[in-house]
C-alpha cells in the first residue's frame, strides 16, 4: 500500500470511529476533519495545529457549533437529561454526503492521482463554504481562507513533482 493509500485508509477508519462515537450513521466532513487532526506527524495535522486546531480544539469547535445551531431554535442540550446511550454497534458507517464531497474535492485538487498528498484531504474538507465544518471554524475564530492558503503552501512545499 502506498503512503497516501495508507493515510486515506487510516483517516477513513478513524473518521468512522468518530462517527460512531457521535451516534452518526454516516461519516461526514467533520468526522474526517477530526481524523485528520489526530494524525500526529503529518503535514495537515501540523497546518491545523499552527492555526490552534489540535484534535481537542476541533472537537470543542464542533461541540460549540452543535449548541449554537440548536440555540437558534431555542433548544438546549442541557435540557435533556437522559442516560448516555451505549456505544453504537460495530457496523461500519457509510460515507455520508458531506464526507463524499470532501473526498471528491480532495481528489479533484491534485493534478494527478500520484500527486495526491495527505494535505489534499484537508484541502478537500476546508473547501466547503457552507455546513457544519465552516460554521465550527468560524465560531472558533479561525480564518478559513487563511487556513486554505496554509494548506496550499504545505502542499507546494512538499515537493510535488
Amino acid at each position: 500500500m502506498s503512503p497516501i493509500d495508507a493515510y486515506l485508509h487510516t483517516v477513513i477508519m478513524e473518521a468512522a470511529t468518530e462517527a460512531r462515537r457521535q451516534g452518526s450513521a454516516t461519516i461526514e466532513a467533520q468526522h474526517l476533519l477530526l481524523a485528520v487532526a489526530a494524525q500526529e506527524g503529518t503535514a495537515p495535522q501540523r497546518v491545523l495545529a499552527s492555526a490552534g486546531l489540535d484534535y481537542q480544539a476541533v472537537l470543542a469547535a464542533l461541540d460549540r457549533e452543535f449548541d449554537h445551531s440548536l440555540s437558534a431554535v431555542g433548544v438546549s442540550r442541557a435540557a435533556f437529561n437522559l442516560p448516555r446511550p451505549s456505544m453504537p454497534s460495530k457496523r461500519p458507517p457509510d460515507i455520508g454526503a458531506t464526507g463524499k464531497l470532501a473526498l471528491e474535492r480532495a481528489f479533484a485538487s491534485a493534478p494527478r492521482k500520484k500527486d495526491l498528498r495527505p494535505a489534499h484531504v484537508l484541502l478537500g474538507i476546508l473547501q466547503a463554504e457552507v455546513g457544519t465544518v465552516p460554521r465550527a471554524l468560524a465560531l472558533a475564530g479561525v480564518d478559513r481562507a487563511d487556513l486554505l492558503n496554509r494548506v496550499r503552501d504545505a502542499i507546494a512545499g512538499d515537493g510535488v513533482e
Binding site: Q22, G23, S24, A25, E65, F66, S69, L70, A72, V73, V75, R77, F80, L82, P85, G131, T132, R135
Partner: peptide, 13 residues
C-alpha cells in the same frame, strides 16, 4: 444548521 442539529439531537435522544 438548526435542522441538522435537531436531527442529530433527535437521533441521540
Amino acid at each position: 444548521a438548526a435542522v441538522v442539529a435537531l436531527r442529530r439531537l433527535a437521533d441521540q435522544l
